[in-house]
Nucleic acid binder design. Structure first.
Lengths: 212, 212
DNA sequence: ACCTGCACTTGACAGTCGTCAAGAATTTAC
DNA sequence: GTAAATTCTTGACGACTGTCAAGTGCAGGT
């Protein structure tokens, strides 16, 4: 928890704390829209406030500074992001169903959330320059790696075959594929999504040792 | 060529043009240092000039605006970057030599040029938000893809085995591996480089169909 | 010796940025 | 219904940004 939230928790009732937290996420949601449109470099607090129904001063009432606001945004984004994939691995009954389902899920989120994904990569890169963001980025990255690993393990189990890669390598590979597809998609390539679906499924099939 | 350079070419002697171009690359080199240290978002023209031996005004004498300067920087970076890898594929005589040599080259450039690489990823991400950079980024990305493809094809030829992936997928995979390694390396993980060397070599070996 | 044109510096401009204090507006408590 | 505490707005601050006009110093040519 943040210091501001802690202060609130000390001084106010539980109900006020909830309201406080609720407005924080509300503002973070508005900020997330602006951030995903403009990117980290060109997003100002005034611009964020203009895309909400409040004035720019309110941001410093709910967040200590710009860093805390953006950190909160990224954490909020993570919660949404990982949740979606887990349905895929849970619903799949056969290996082939999982492979095509995973590919379809990747393609779907590429189409639907392209701007949020480019924001994620933007923040991950910013963390290479500003250590303030590094901790949160590492946490999100690990949760994404675990998400990918659940898919891979689930596929290996359904095919009853041993896996040939470790979790970090598997994640790096799929992430590389997704990033290239995102780049093409944002550049206007309409086929990027369907290509991502097939290449993702193909790669998943290849991550277990061939039968022969 | 840029408009500014064209104007110079019209008005001045060839020698003056060379001098002009030389100073441009000189300033771009200084800018490259600042950019790789601070990242795109926080690099100002005054900061760039302060890391050179000139004042901030001179940048607008040699470059139309900030975009042209940074574009020039990125292009200059590309030239250096691709050059290094080609030595590897040219000198390798056996498949195993190529695999380990490629891994070693990846680890070496990770160690030596980590800051330049994170700048590259920063610029590639910026191009997702600012279309001004997209053209140059695409060009560099394609040249990197070709570089990777030369490695992969060279390895397949030496092992006399057919390849199982297309060029864009191979590039995406290696790029994903490198990016993860870069992240760990910048975060202080000393082992990131050696791990990258082995995982890179392993992946290259796996890109041809197994004999069995 | 003087002049012309190039290379570079200086200082200022209009704008934007994050931050915060002071106060208005609204809600809550009694 | 009034007082107190909250939520939110407004306006200002100093700092920083990209850009550019004006001017300095200096070279080479005549």
């Amino acid at each position: 928890m943040t210091e501001v939230a802690d202060n609130k928790q000390d001084r106010f009732t539980r109900r006020q704390v909830d309201k406080f937290a609720q407005r924080r996420t509300e503002l973070a949601q508005a900020a997330l829209i602006t951030l995903s449109e403009l990117g980290y470099a060109r997003t100002s607090l005034r611009e964020i406030a203009q895309n909400s129904e409040f004035s720019h001063g309110v941001l410093h009432y709910y967040f200590r500074d710009k860093v805390e606001l953006i950190t909160h945004c990224v954490r909020q984004y993570k919660a949404e992001c990982v949740k979606r994939y887990d349905e895929v691995v849970d619903t799949a009954r056969t290996a082939e169903e999982l492979a095509t389902g995973f590919g379809a899920a990747m393609a779907a989120t590429l189409r639907a959330d392209a701007r949020l994904h480019r924001l994620w990569y933007d923040m991950r890169n910013q963390s290479l320059f500003e250590p303030v963001f590094r901790e949160d980025v590492v946490e999100i990255d690990q949760s994404l790696e675990r998400m990918i690993w659940r898919i891979v393990v689930g596929y290996g189990t359904l095919r009853e075959q041993p896996l040939v890669v470790a979790a970090p390598i598997a994640y790096a590979m799929f992430d590389g594929l997704f990033q290239q597809a995102l780049f093409k998609f944002v550049s206007g390539d309409e086929q990027a999504a369907v290509e991502l679906a097939t290449t993702t499924a193909d790669m998943l099939r290849r991550l277990v040792t061939p039968t022969s």
